[in-house]
Nucleic acid binder design. Structure first.
Length: 852
RNA sequence: GGGCGUUUAGCUCAGCCGGAAGAGCGCCGCCCUUACAAGGCGGAGGUCGCAGGUUCGAGGCCUGCAGCGCCCACCA
């Protein structure tokens, strides 16, 4: 046994993380049955950025659960994944190197990244771009791994996967091909939400609303009789795309007009006036123009009323160069020419001028603020553009599937329970299938080609699928079966599908990726379906839901039994942390300042699913707790010597058995809390007990443990001290892995993290007939003595000349069993008088003050 | 508009099944106590958001309202 003279927390992270790696402490041992394994579907962090305290928060909470399950005897399957696939990485590479991807350029094998980012960015070939992405993510991943190791995550680093890696590409492509075969994936040309800056379609799950200033413009439409119908619109620039006017069927102001034509101002195009219940009589003038497409309601009207399409917005967010065919009137074509090529903002400004000059605008625009749909990573409002895309069914237009997925959500065990409501409201609100194709570059390509006819036109309806044995394929450089590369782009040849999959189309397969689906059937059988999915609340609609969908299709099973949803980290002003607010503190900085155990203490104090303020005060407390563990351990080991902590048969003194009984109760509580995934409650119980143990029990038995009362009592105190210490270290180990391992290493063999979780039943047995009341009343008396000394402004060493305790008979009997320890701890030199009374009171007489 | 959560000491938060309001920080005071002065001991400090109700008894239950946060929604 080697106890340092001056125990310290400094440097424990480096020492122990290195040791754990060398010893394989957290290595998954697959030689267990499924029931003995606990598998965790860890969220793969997005590596193209920096880790923030929000990540630390959630990952620590999960790690405590992993450690508990490991000590409880499960073989814990705890891999880390890196999410390096997708748009965030593209953006980082663009900024970092000053490049942009131009798929039209040929690959340059000798390309080297510019040393300084050029402005404007340099255009490079797709393959060069992807290579830059692949290079940069490797660096990022190394940095992330270092932080996670420093934080003490008990991940098995030999199991790491990446979402852009070959295995992930293979699984993503395989799952997609099977979904085509089963009819779950399909291609359609349809109006889709489109980000004009990223130039890609986006899915419903990636939308967010933002409040934006706008204005109602009252615009006159003309009727044959010379009257005008005034509509109000926030999007006057779409006037040329107008296909109809619509009002509510019951709106008396317009019932006479239904079925009659009107003509657009400026462009003089005839449009019908139609009725539809979605038109809101309360809004504006009660009659609206339907365009191709101003919002999703336009799409609904267009579809349900079977209206023509008249698109004018191009994929780059500018008005198309040529007007719709419907504009035939020369002045109308001239008006459109004023707008062609302008951005949407420019076009809006210009058309308002034209309308005003033509006298078609009624009054001044009325300023309003309204919610507008954005891509969550985007900068300009989304447009709706008709494009050909791949979709995966998700219940958005299939009530049977939707009901099945809702049932899946209910079969899952949610922690906390109420988070299920978010899943329900998302699934119930789905308004279409999942759009999985993206017009981007760094992602998993669709393993698809299209045959070209004699004129070189693709047959979209007859895609050529890659065979599973060839996966992963890159259709932009691999040729399909039965074709030669030379036939690419030639009549009767083929073209590749140029799109990549939505990053969630890969991430939704993390259970399959981690568990070795098809690649390692033995591992898969032992780990899938998984036990736990931990994640944040903001990706219930994406990651969680999509994963349920994929597992439903591919395996007809829930991908996991339990899901834990962590809370947000708020800054001390209770605002959500974000970079733009400049309130991000780097995790490594805090880890170095307070120590990993202290930061973990803060994270593990946050209740499951509860938003928690970033509170350095909590970290200070955590640090103090860790230091206290060092010092209390040093004391216990100093007096306990080489006593075997498992020899609890020597614990014969009633006070000691009392302590063991309380400790057994603690083990019950902590085990129950952890089994219910409530790591915070577990920590709270252990911590509370530990401080009481230090302040009261240690003081109570200190003299006896030093050997002041003969050998029997001495041995009883020592074994109890060490048994309690040993148990407390194990109870703290999931939360404070470094300090507990450090102390464990002073006197025990192996790692505390591979030690067995405390056995409450064994502790109850060791306590025999231990009565918790003995420690309780002794503590109370000791407290009263301290209070008397403190209030007299005397040292705690001051002798007590007389101590009178008035209480009920049963409590006095309990106290009598601890009388010697109480005397010693109180420094009582005179009488201890026990007086039976119904009015409890404690009276303390101190020795005279002999100070100056 | 619908839903979920939340509201307890100056601050950050506990409070399990309804049974005498808690912790830490901060503040004030004291104590060098042979584990710990980067410590220890003690003290002050609360109308448990508001209004009703159930109950012998409510911070926990019921109803309504309000503030805050979030989720969802076809927002011209």
């Amino acid at each position: 046994m080697t106890v340092p003279d001056k125990p310290s927390l400094d440097g424990l992270e480096g020492i122990w993380s290195t040791r754990w790696e060398a010893d394989g402490t957290y290595r998954f041992d697959r030689a267990h049955d499924r029931a003995e394994i606990f598998s965790i579907d860890t969220p793969p962090p997005t590596v193209s950025g920096s880790l923030h305290m929000g990540s630390v928060f959630g990952y620590v909470q999960t790690d405590t659960i992993a450690r508990f399950q490991r000590m409880r005897g499960r073989a814990v399957f705890y891999p880390m994944g890196w999410d390096d696939n997708g748009l965030p990485t593209e953006r980082r590479v663009q900024n970092y190197f000053g490049v942009r991807c131009d798929p039209g350029l040929p690959y340059d094998p000798g390309f080297e990244a510019p040393s300084e980012p050029p402005d404007p960015p340099r255009a490079i070939a797709r393959r060069n771009f992807v290579e830059l992405c692949e290079g940069l993510v490797v660096e990022d991943e190394a940095r992330f791994e270092e932080l996670w190791r420093h934080l003490g995550l008990s991940v098995d680093w030999s199991l790491t996967y990446t979402t852009i890696g070959k295995a992930s590409q293979r699984s993503s492509q395989r799952a997609f091909l099977r979904s085509i075969t089963r009819g779950e994936a399909y291609q359609a040309e349809a109006p889709t939400l489109w980000d004009v800056d990223f130039r890609t379609a986006v899915a419903q799950a990636e939308l967010e609303d933002r409040e934006l200033p706008g204005a109602y413009h009252a615009v006159k439409f003309h009727r044959g009789d010379g009257d005008a119908v005034v509509i109000e619109t926030t999007r006057p620039e779409l006037l040329a795309a107008c296909v109809a006017l619509v009002a509510h069927p019951d709106d008396a102001r317009y019932t006479d007009l239904f079925g009659t034509p009107a003509r657009t101002p400026l462009f003089d195009v005839e449009v019908p006036i139609v009725a539809h219940p979605l038109a809101d009589p309360e809004k504006g003038s009660g009659i609206a123009m339907i365009c191709t497409f101003g919002d999703l309601t336009d799409v609904t009207w267009w579809r349900e009323l079977e209206l023509p399409a008249r698109p004018i917005i191009d994929w780059d967010g500018r008005l198309k160069p040529e007007p719709p065919d419907a504009i035939t009137d020369p002045p109308g074509r001239a008006a459109y020419a004023e707008l062609a090529g302008l951005t949407i903002r420019q076009a809006q400004r210009r058309i308002v001028e034209l309308l005003r000059d033509a006298g078609e605008l009624v009054g001044d625009p009325e300023r309003i603020t309204h919610a507008v749909k954005f891509y969550e990573k985007g900068e300009r409002p989304l447009e709706i553009i008709t494009t050909r895309q791949w979709y995966l069914r998700n219940g958005g237009r299939d009530p049977v599937l939707r009901a099945a997925l809702l049932a899946s959500g209910h079969a899952l065990a949610w922690h906390p329970e109420h988070m299920r409501a978010r899943y329900d409201s998302w699934v119930e609100g789905l308004n279409g299938d999942w759009l999985i194709s993206r017009q981007r570059f760094f992602g998993v390509p669709f393993p698809i080609w299209y045959p070209l006819d004699g004129d070189g036109a693709p047959d979209w309806g007859a895609p050529i699928l890659a065979p599973e044995a060839r996966l992963p394929v890159d259709p932009s450089s691999d040729a399909p079966e039965g074709y030669d590369e030379a036939q690419r782009g030639q009549p009767r040849g083929f073209v590749d599908d140029p799109d990549v999959m939505d990053t969630w189309a890969t991430s939704s397969l993390t259970p399959q990726l981690a568990c070795g689906w098809e690649d390692d059937p033995d591992l898969f059988a032992r780990t899938f379906p998984m036990d736990l999915r931990p994640q944040g609340p903001e990706i219930i609609r994406t990651w969680l839901f999509d994963t349920v969908v994929r597992a439903h299709f591919e395996h007809d099973v829930l991908p996991w039994q339990h899901v834990t949803i962590n809370g947000w980290v708020l800054d001390p002003d209770r605002k959500k942390m974000s970079k733009s607010k400049g309130n991000v503190i780097t995790p490594m900085n805090l880890l170095e300042r307070y120590g990993s155990d202290a930061v973990r203490y803060w994270a593990a104090s946050g209740r499951p699913g509860t938003d928690t303020a970033l509170d350095e005060g909590q970290m200070k407390i955590g640090r103090r707790l860790a230091i206290k563990i060092l010092n209390a351990s040093k004391f216990a080991l100093g007096v306990g010597g080489d006593v075997d902590p498992t020899a609890t048969g020597d614990a014969t003194a009633p006070v000691d058995r009392s302590l063991l009984a309380t400790l057994a109760g603690l083990a019950d509580d902590v085990t129950a809390a952890f089994a219910d995934f409530d790591y915070a409650r577990a920590l709270d119980h252990t911590e509370r007990f530990f401080w009481g143990f230090c302040d009261d029990y240690l003081e109570l038995v200190k003299q006896r443990a030093y050997g002041a009362e003969g050998e029997t009592g001495d041995a009883s105190a020592r074994v109890t001290l060490l048994a309690a210490l040993e148990t407390l270290l194990r109870l703290f180990a999931p939360h404070l892995p470094f300090v507990t391992e450090e102390v464990w290493s002073w006197w025990r063999s192996g790692s505390v993290h591979q030690a067995a979780w405390p056995d409450a039943a064994a502790l109850h047995a060791a306590a025999v007939d231990g009565d918790p009341a003995i420690v309780a009343i002794s503590t109370e008396v000791l407290g009263a003595v301290r209070k008397a000394k403190t209030q007299a402004q005397r040292s705690l060493r001051t002798e007590v000349t007389r101590l009178v305790v008035g209480d009920a008979a049963a409590r006095l009997a309990a106290l009598r069993l601890a009388a010697d320890d109480v005397r010693a701890a109180a420094r009582l030199t005179g009488e201890l008088e026990l007086v039976e009374t119904t009015d409890p009171a404690i009276e303390v007489d101190l020795a005279p003050d002999t100070r100056g």
